[in-house]
């Protein structure tokens, strides 16, 4: 399974400066998914742990927005089944970490004022910006073509419900003195296993990406300037 770093509930309260009351309230409102509560027995008894990056990022975003948005609205953004027609303002997406002109270009998106993106476009931008450091240009193209062709309402719902990753793979095939390398894009659970000749070039947690996009949409009503980027990107 995941070798994600875990953080105890006590640490979350301390690091984020929040109270038990807030944490339980946010859980009740559906702002923190049930699946993130990982119960382990420790020497002090049962304790709850969370995936470190996810919880700290989520809590920071909730803290950011809770004074300007009712908790129920935030919950709508996070828990709502994704609407394939969801529109995301380009302005917002540009504020996401790692998104620059070259990413937009790689995704074939022309910048313009008041431009809105489809959820597929937004996922492309997010995935490309994360894979850019390790992937080749033609692989980035494959990634965005895959997302545009394959992400439909049903897949969006699966991404919302559980963790699905986009895996960028390379495989070398050789025989008869000829050797070729092919690139593959697979959307599968994070712990998918591939054959031994496959090298993983990059992986994007689509659920996490979608959450960020949706939170960005919610934050967009705050107006420009307050779009603080997430404290830490993934590995």
């Amino acid at each position: 399974m995941d070798e994600e770093q875990l953080v105890s509930k006590k640490e979350v309260l301390e690091l984020a400066g929040i109270s038990y009351g807030q944490l339980y309230r946010w859980k009740r409102k559906g702002l923190i998914p049930e699946a993130w509560f990982i119960r382990r027995s420790t020497f002090t008894g049962q304790e709850t742990f969370f995936p470190r990056e996810k919880i700290l990022e989520r809590v920071a975003r909730i803290k950011d927005m809770k004074d300007t948005h009712p908790l129920d609205d935030l919950a709508d953004v996070i828990t709502e089944q994704v609407n394939a027609k969801l529109q995301v303002s380009l302005e917002r997406i540009r504020r996401m970490k790692g998104v620059d002109a070259s990413v937009l270009e790689a995704c074939d998106i022309q910048a313009g004022p008041k431009k809105v993106l489809s959820i597929q476009d937004a996922l492309c931008v997010g995935a490309v910006s994360r894979l850019k450091p390790t992937a080749r240009a033609e692989e980035l193209d494959l990634v965005q073509r895959t997302l545009r062709a394959r992400v439909d309402e049903a897949l969006l719902e699966r991404i919302t419900a559980g963790r699905l990753d986009l895996h960028l793979l390379r495989k070398r095939i050789s025989g008869g003195g000829i050797s070729a390398e092919i690139s593959l894009v697979v959307i599968a659970p994070a712990d998918a296993v591939f054959d031994p000749d496959v090298t993983t070039i990059g992986r994007v947690d689509l659920q996490d990406l979608l959450d960020r996009i949706k939170l960005n949409v919610a934050a967009s009503e705050e107006g420009p300037g307050s779009g603080r980027s997430a404290p830490e990107e993934e590995r």
Partner: peptide, 14 residues
């Protein structure tokens, strides 16, 4: 307490 009360876990503000 007006009877037997039990819950697996209890959490909240106060």
């Amino acid at each position: 307490l007006g009877g037997k009360c039990s819950a697996r876990e209890i959490g909240g503000e106060s």
